[in-house]
């Protein structure tokens, strides 16, 4: 069963461009605060699929279009051309940014962030204990987040995301987080979700991690998927390319 189908997808951005400006243009930009823009195609004709119960890795250099593709699948960005079809509840965890508020307690943050992921209050009530238990931060439920360490906040963000019933989990530089025991726990949780039929798309620069967890890998370069296939082979090819590079 295909959970994600991406067909010939293109995405362009209008990006700031200050090169080759004439003196008058620079002068106007300085006062108006506007700068000349140019078109930049971040994703160019990408096609791929992801099956239920698989972890698909996305690798490539910075600016190769991995995160843009992830956001296109999540529906955060609108595509310019092509077709994207998804089947299942999408949860995106991009740099663990899920809108946690420092001045709210862990309890309030759980309710607020779960709402952002589309859970109603009753559903959050049902999952609340599981979320807290997973973080292993039971004694801090009524503590405000500004008193949390970065690792504790990461645990909370991750726990909220994986308890929101993801059928498609999009992870950008997020997989093994926290200390060693939590890394193991978070990995087991993701593998559990995959075992239940969820699809995970993982963007990462950590090649051993990609090789360890992904069944398939797509290597992106300048907006194009240049290689796709078995993770060991693709990671090896990419590693060689990086060394040459």
């Amino acid at each position: 069963m295909k959970r994600i189908v991406v067909e010939n997808v293109w995405k362009k951005f209008s990006i700031g461009y200050t090169g080759r400006q004439r003196a008058l243009s620079k002068f106007i930009s300085m006062f108006s605060g506007r700068e000349p823009k140019k078109e930049f195609w971040a994703v160019k004709g990408v096609s791929m699929t992801a099956e239920a119960g698989e972890i698909l890795g996305l690798i490539g250099e910075n600016g190769s279009g991995k995160s843009t593709l992830l956001r296109l699948i999540a529906g955060i960005y609108a595509k310019d051309k092509g077709k994207i079809e998804t089947d299942g509840r999408i949860i995106s965890l991009i740099n663990l940014n899920i809108g946690l508020k420092d001045r709210l307690t862990m309890r309030d943050n759980i309710y607020m962030c779960c709402s952002l992921f589309g859970l109603g209050k009753r559903m959050v009530d049902e999952r609340f204990n599981a979320i807290v238990e997973f973080t292993e931060l039971e004694e801090y439920v009524n503590t405000k987040l500004y008193q949390f360490s970065a690792g504790m906040a990461q645990r909370l963000a991750f726990s909220i995301a994986v308890h929101c019933n993801p059928e498609i989990l999009l992870l950008d530089e997020v997989f093994e987080i926290g200390d060693e025991s939590f890394k193991k726990k978070s990995t087991e949780r993701i593998e559990g979700l995959v075992g239940e039929g969820a699809t995970v798309v993982l963007v990462s620069h950590d090649l051993p991690l990609i090789e360890r967890h992904c069944s398939r890998v797509a290597w992106m370069d300048r907006g194009v998927v240049v290689r796709e296939g078995n993770s060991t082979r693709i990671v090896e090819e990419y590693g060689r390319h990086e060394k040459k590079g």
Partner: peptide, 11 residues
């Protein structure tokens, strides 16, 4: 003001 969350989650 909510740009980070808008760029991270579809809602």
């Amino acid at each position: 003001d909510n740009r980070f969350i808008i760029k991270s989650i579809k809602f």
